[in-house]
Design a binder for these strands. Structure first.
Length: 572
DNA sequence: AAGCGAGTAGCGGGTCTTGA
DNA sequence: TCAAGACCCGCTACTCGCTT
């Protein structure tokens, strides 16, 4: 049981939590004070916690404890911690029922773990789903660390959690290191191992399960309704064919438009409500519609496509393209929070057609550009090696493009290291490529990285029966000389252990190459480890090029080093 | 404001040659 | 025996205009 001092209101400190779009804002970075800077750091829809203020608060709390000779101690049992799923649902339902506005909900911290709402229950207006799960998250968060939240206040899109000042300072002073470490770690690994995050997931599921999505087709228009469990309409949107593409639109009161936006965004869209002549509009085009990976909605779209075809509004190919688009989903790969578009470029060249990948993001504002570059760099990508970027300036447009293939290799390398974001990005890319029919291309670019360090070269046998050579590979190693890799191959012939080595370099044209002197024996060894039959039986100097690097990269112990070096020097 | 696809300069991979 | 220059031409990175 927790005894809270009954403090007057002016002693409380509020923690301002801005409307959230993710968990990213909760790192220990200083809180940017200008709204402009804040947007640049977190993006317009991301979560932003008043961290600087929080830190000062903790610091003061810690100082105060120390000056009093009190060691801050871990809070003892708190009836709200760990908060149960039912409690968060209870909280949610209290919030769901409460009116938007300055009315507030009180959380009981004394006698019972259940929240008790004091006001605003019966007014019947609902919060957008993307707001109440964040409230639940923060309630859970403060409860987990034993800090009693006295009041939660939601006004428009700003949420505030009120704490008892001293109590919060003391408790957070102790928990801060762990908390910030945890968040930084989670952000890197995307491991939401902490039960806090699991609960958030539960809350999301709860929201998803309790929203019904239905559609009605009227002529060449489909209306999608979002309903609650009781069947009351929460929001709707009309989808129509504007002659060229699908167009989903809603126009009406601001609150309705905002609620629709909240629902669509919770379903994975990225839309905003805009005002035009007093009416608020929500508009989406084909790409954004199919980006919402919600089966009921996509079903409505494909039903509409069928209807349009029947009434001869669209041709057969158009319907096919539309259905494929629905099937394939968005062409966006998220790498370290940066959404990159993947496009296929086909072109005619002398020797036939060529297909290639373009993975590019074109931010318009310099701030969005900086934030994206920073995120990529933090994830381990090197500018100039794995991605190229140009900052947008005045008239000039900027871009960030993931290099093919070196950027993809880096992604694969991170994936092998078990970095979750890379794992997801690679599988998303493959999934998308399969759905859009260019998997062969993606596979081709990823193959060198996927094959890296998969083969143990030891005990491989190099044979050239024509010239009577038989050698057994003992080891393949890489040594560095002035930043250049020297590959050493140890092999055994008739019981003698011999070795040969060659150094890789870059010529003026920018190509990688290595020269190696051969005799029958060495040629056999080389043609085996590089899988290049042409080298067999060759005498004199053989020039090794990029394809030989890829062959060598398959061997354990040398692969990543060689591939990394190759990617670096290839992109000077 | 961002996405998409087409156009294009020039970089870099491959190969042959030359130099030490 | 190893390293590096020369040169060709396909392909990539970047640009641009139009679309969403």
């Amino acid at each position: 049981m927790l005894n809270l001092p009954n403090r007057p209101y002016h002693n409380r400190r509020d923690l301002v939590v801005h409307r959230a779009g993710g968990l990213h804002g909760l790192s220990a970075q200083p809180y940017p004070h200008s709204a402009h800077h804040r947007q640049a750091l977190y993006g317009p829809k991301q979560l932003c916690v008043h961290v600087g203020r929080l830190q000062r608060l903790f610091h003061r709390g810690r100082q105060r404890c120390l000056s009093r000779g009190v060691t801050p101690r871990r809070p003892q049992h708190n009836p709200l911690s760990p908060i149960g799923a039912s409690t968060s649902y209870g909280l949610l339902s209290a919030f769901l029922r409460r009116r938007r506005g300055p009315a507030c909900c009180w959380l009981s911290c004394r006698d019972e773990p259940r929240p008790r709402r004091l006001r605003g229950e019966e007014r019947g207006e609902k919060l957008p789903p993307d707001v109440h799960d964040k409230i639940a998250l923060y309630t859970i968060m403060v409860a987990k660390y034993g800090i009693a939240a006295e009041k939660v206040n939601v006004v428009e899109d700003k949420m505030r959690i009120f704490f008892s000042r001293e109590y919060a300072a003391e408790a957070f002073a102790e928990a801060w290191d762990e908390l910030s470490w945890l968040w930084r770690f989670d952000r890197k690994q995307e491991l939401y191992a902490d039960h806090l995050f699991k609960k958030l997931q539960h809350v999301r599921e709860y929201v998803e399960k309790h929203m019904r999505i239905e559609h009605v087709i009227r002529g060449a228009k489909a209306t999608v309704y979002f309903k609650d469990v009781a069947g009351n309409e929460i929001a709707h949107i009309n989808i129509s064919w504007d002659g060229k593409s699908l167009h989903a639109a809603f126009g009406g009161a601001r609150k309705k438009a905002e609620r629709l936006v909240a629902i669509l965004n919770a379903l994975g869209a990225d839309v905003e409500a805009r005002e035009h002549g007093g009416t608020w509009y929500v508009q989406l085009y084909t790409g954004s519609i199919t980006a919402i990976r919600c089966p009921e909605l996509l079903e409505a779209v494909s039903a509409l496509a069928g209807e349009l075809y029947k009434s001869k509004k669209i041709a057969k190919e158009q319907r096919g393209r539309l259905l494929r688009e629905i099937e394939a989903g968005p062409n966006v790969v998220e790498v370290a929070g940066v959404e990159l578009n993947v496009n296929l470029k086909e072109e005619e060249i002398k020797s036939g057609a060529s297909k290639r990948l373009m993975i590019i993001y074109e931010p318009t504002s310099p701030e969005a550009f900086d934030a994206a570059v920073k995120a990529l760099k933090e994830a381990g990508f090197v500018e100039g090696v794995h991605f190229t970027a140009k900052k947008p300036e005045k008239e000039e447009r900027g871009f960030i493009s993931l290099k093919v293939p070196s950027g993809l290799w880096k992604l694969e390398e991170l994936r092998r290291q078990g970095v979750k974001l890379a794992e997801r990005a690679v599988s998303r890319l493959e999934e998308m490529a399969k759905a859009r029919g260019f998997y062969d291309l993606v596979e081709e670019h990823l193959r060198p990285a996927k094959e890296v360090e998969t083969i143990d070269p030891r005990e491989m046998v190099a044979e050239d029966p024509e010239r009577g050579v038989k050698a057994v590979i003992r080891d393949v190693k890489v040594e560095w000389e002035n930043g250049r890799p020297r590959v050493e191959v140890e092999y055994e012939v008739n019981g003698d252990v011999k070795s040969l080595s060659f150094i890789w370099g870059v010529d003026k044209g920018g190509a990688v190459r290595a020269g190696v002197g051969l005799n029958n024996e060495k040629a056999a060894v080389f043609s085996t480890i590089t899988c290049d039959e042409k080298l067999k039986g060759k005498k004199g100097v053989a020039t090794l090029t990029a394809k030989h690097i890829f062959a060598l990269a398959k061997y354990k112990g040398v692969g990543w080093q060689l591939l990394r070096w190759y990617a670096e020097v290839m992109n000077m």
